[in-house]
Design a protein around this nucleic acid. Sequence first.
DNA 1: GGCCAGGACACCA
DNA 2: TGGTGTCATGGC
Length: 227
Amino acid sequence: MATDSLLLQLFATLLDCYGNRHWWPGETPFEVCVGAILTQNTNWGNVEKAIANLKAADCLSITGIAACPPHELAALIRPAGYFNIKADRLQSFVRFLNVSHQGSLEQLFEIPWQKARYELLAVRGIGPETADSILLYAGGKPSFVVDAYTRRIFSRLGLVPEQISYDGLQQLFMQHLPLDVDLFNEYHALLVELGKQVCRPHPRCPACCLQKQCSFGNIKLEQSASE
DNA sequence: GGCCAGGACACCA
DNA sequence: TGGTGTCATGGC
């Protein structure tokens, strides 16, 4: 099967199984950006608590985070873990917006998204997954988000090597799927849902659970991406 | 009480 | 360039 149709078939199977996930949770694009930074290696439930604290303190804005003393910001986002590091990362992000885009998230999203991605990656604390999450879910740009679940799922399906790079796996999707924001949005959300359901870090994943417990309709699990 | 979660970065060989 | 340690809370 061609990789294009395999990826689309997997998407259809997951969509049928889990339904529309309505991602990303967040009332505004800026809240999505904050969530993308706070959720780094962290359970989303803890992120929600941190965001609630920011809202209660009236700090969930570019000016609010910029003006908040670092130790106070860290205290507000404490439930999200790594609070000292993430406080610094949030302030680096808003500093970038203020210096490079006149404090406007909209202005960032007006430039070509590839350039915006390059700029985001230069911000301290924003790596490829966070940058792509910001671009896709806050900016509505067709930049596919790859995360630990995506790598785990696709390597255990035998579609990619386990050690594939972020860019390598991202290219698999972006070269074989239409550059469709809604498709990328839903696809990543569905992969996360699947990962939460069945995919634990190897080797704790029971007998590589994906291969034993998930059939994905009529998709052959051992199928090679090159076929 | 241990494991894990929607990463990123500094440091070292 | 790749591997490893560090950052940290809260739920199960």
